[in-house]
Computed example of a mutant assay.
Amino acid sequence: MQKKVIFFEVQGGTDKGPDGYRKDTMPMVHALKERGQDAEVIFFDLAKREDIFQYVKEHGIAYVSRINPGNLQHEAEYFDMLRELCAVGVIGMPHPEAMIGYGSKDVLSKLTSTNLVPDDTFAYYTVETFQSQFPTSLASTERVLKQNRGSTGEGIWRVQLVEPLAEGLTAVPLDAQIKCTEAKDNHVEYWQLAEFMTFCEQYITGTNGMLIDMRFLPRIVEGEIRLFMLRDKPVHVVHKKPADTEDAFSATLFSGAQYRYDAPEAWQALVDNFLTQLPLVTRLLGNYALPLIWTADFMLDTNEAGEDCYILGEMNCSCVGFTSELSLAHQVAEEIITYLAEQTATTV
């Protein structure tokens, strides 16, 4: 009996089509079946968790996770089930620890030893560390604070001093006035630093709470560059240019950004450097296999030699969609089959 590739989904959510599935899931199922590899979709349901585990353990050669974490009420239990499936030999696409490692905002602080992330990038897991470090980092340059939760720019703030810092100060006074622009819609708020930091404590507390603190890159106005990856292969590049309005720095469609799709060859320097760094990235993030479908977002910067360079802003692999380019399902299916052959060859 041929074992199946199981696609995990969850019922409900705004990412579903009229048939109840994500629009990019069934094309992958059909593409695999066209190539002789059986596949099916299973909806994760906590009440059926044990039955699902036993079924996939018996009938599945691999799983592909297609669940948007925002649509999943029982994320911890889902990840535990994926860990158990991997432990009994089901091939994870991706492994749950890779999903966490590549998808969490603190990936940036873990990659400061690469040339992809500036070394003055910090992760705050406690309010005390945030209160201690942030006034100092803000004294050196404009900053961007990113919460771990949320999406479409919510809880991502560009923070600027309203008045220049007095000479000789190495930390911003807590009563200093700051200008804060949220990436969600580029709206501006003015705060005292102490009050804003108290407001931001909500991002640190609770499950998976943290804040990332990195320098603001002014060339974000030239656009964010997203690499769409199938494992170690760049498939296309999305150039996301913020709206041409004052204070705009968000590259989300909601905020008015314009998207353009390019071939990877149009961004050869970025692609070459990223692929060169990829083995180090893999080791730093736990040495798990690269996710099947994932993205890496970059911003333009200028290095000390005055040359263009690219700074990693975020990665995502939880449930990267390609609903506007469903023909990619055939490339995904080929990649799945290639990966299955690699994995089964190493276990024979």
Rank of each mutant, 00 (worst) to 15 (best):
P291M: 05
F216G: 00
E189Q: 13
G89K: 13
D308Y: 03
I156P: 00
R83P: 01
W157T: 01
K23V: 15
G153M: 05
L284Y: 05
S255V: 00
V64R: 03
R143Y: 01
V107E: 02
E128D: 15
Q343G: 00
T141D: 13
V29G: 06
Y124S: 11
I220S: 03
G306M: 02
Q133C: 08
G313F: 01
L82D: 11
R283D: 13
E307C: 04
G286T: 05
V41A: 11
A31E: 09
Q258K: 14
G168R: 02
N148K: 02
H59C: 10
P18A: 15
E246A: 14
K241W: 00
T338A: 15
T344P: 00
N273S: 12
V159D: 00
I42G: 01
W157H: 12
A305V: 01
Q131K: 15
K184R: 11
S327D: 14
V172P: 00
A266E: 13
K179S: 04
E75I: 15
G13F: 07
V221I: 13
L300V: 10
D244A: 14
P173D: 01
G70R: 12
Q192K: 15
T347M: 14
E142Y: 02
S327C: 09
Q268L: 12
K4W: 03
N68P: 04
F43R: 03
Y78S: 05
R35C: 07
H330F: 08
D262P: 00
A266H: 12
I293H: 04
F249K: 01
D297I: 08
I156W: 02
K241Q: 13
E84D: 12
R35S: 07
P173A: 05
K48I: 00
M299R: 07
I42Y: 06
D232S: 11
Q37K: 10
R260N: 10
L328Q: 06
D301A: 14
N316R: 03
I220F: 03
K179C: 05
D24Q: 03
V281R: 05
G60E: 07
S132P: 00
V64S: 09
E265H: 04
A39R: 02
V332R: 05
T170Q: 13
E77N: 15
D244G: 03
D308T: 13
D185Q: 09
G321W: 00
G168Q: 01
K4I: 03
T302A: 03
E325Q: 12
M1G: 11
E335T: 10
L72V: 09
P135Y: 07
I204A: 00
G306Q: 03
C86P: 06
S65P: 07
T25H: 06
T141S: 15
N316A: 14
E77W: 10
G209W: 04
T121A: 01
I336V: 15
L211H: 02
G223W: 04
Q2W: 04
F44Q: 07
E325K: 14
R260L: 13
Q277Y: 06
G321V: 08
A263W: 02
M99C: 11
T338H: 15
T198H: 10
F216V: 00
E142A: 11
E50L: 12
Q11G: 09
L230D: 03
Y339N: 04
F53L: 11
S324R: 10
V235I: 15
Y125G: 07
Q147Y: 06
R149C: 07
M93V: 04
N148R: 11
L82A: 11
L312K: 05
D185A: 10
L312S: 06
E182S: 06
L253A: 12
E325S: 06
V162M: 10
T323M: 06
L270D: 08
G103L: 03
S327A: 15
